[in-house]
Simulated scan of single mutants.
Amino acid sequence: MRIGLMGGTFDPIHMGHLLAAQAAREAYPLDQVWFIPSGVPPLKGRNPGADSVARLEMTMLATEVEPAFRVLPLEVDRGGVSYSYDTVTELMERHPQAEFAYIIGSDRVNDLVKWHRIEELAAKIRFIGLARPGDPMTPLEELPAFIASRLTIARMPQIELSSTAIRQRVAQGHSIRFMVPESVYSYIQRNGLYES
């Protein structure tokens, strides 16, 4: 079975994340996509706005309508900073028959060389890089060969959404309806998340 892994803070998860998962699923192709909300992301420069439990719950709500999507609480349960290498190693031990591919945005493609134990990680799995129109990505020929040879590019529909912009809209009192799944919208409202 081919499984795409989609890690992130998902703070909050939005329609762009779901479109990205579907684009990667079709491009590779993948049998399933497993969403893995991070506990404490190693390369993000800020603390998430919602706690890890709320981010996990929102991710579960957003993905429940698609049978090929699954949510793993692995990194949230682990606590602290989680590295993709550790997560992939654990998943490979649990699911030795599965073939894993890590789904990453163009920004993550650009910083892949900075990932913890990246050479060992690239030897274990493939990467699916999501190319969005107008979003610069390091050309394959400029990446180290051990990364470029393990990277598949998936074209992504153009959509101007980010978790940061969604948090800002909520803080400013603007609507985020239709930017996030309805179940996530209700959860954010019910729990007063991201309000200033």
Rank of each mutant, 00 (worst) to 15 (best):
M6E: 06
D11V: 13
D11F: 02
H17A: 02
Q22S: 15
A27E: 01
W34S: 13
W34D: 07
S38L: 08
L43P: 07
G45I: 06
G45N: 11
N47K: 13
S52D: 11
V53P: 15
M58D: 05
E66R: 04
A68Q: 00
R70G: 12
R70F: 10
R70C: 14
R70M: 13
G80E: 04
V81W: 02
Y83V: 10
V88M: 12
H95T: 09
F100K: 14
F100H: 12
Y102M: 14
I103P: 09
G105W: 04
D107Q: 02
V109E: 14
L112Y: 06
W115I: 08
H116C: 07
A122I: 01
R126S: 06
L130A: 03
G134Q: 06
L140E: 04
L140W: 00
L143H: 02
A145C: 03
F146P: 15
I147P: 05
L151F: 03
L151G: 06
T152M: 10
A154M: 01
I159V: 08
E160Q: 09
L161N: 02
S162A: 00
T164G: 04
T164P: 04
I166Y: 11
R169A: 09
G173L: 11
G173I: 06
H174Y: 06
H174F: 05
H174S: 05
S175A: 03
S186V: 14
S186Q: 15
Y194H: 09
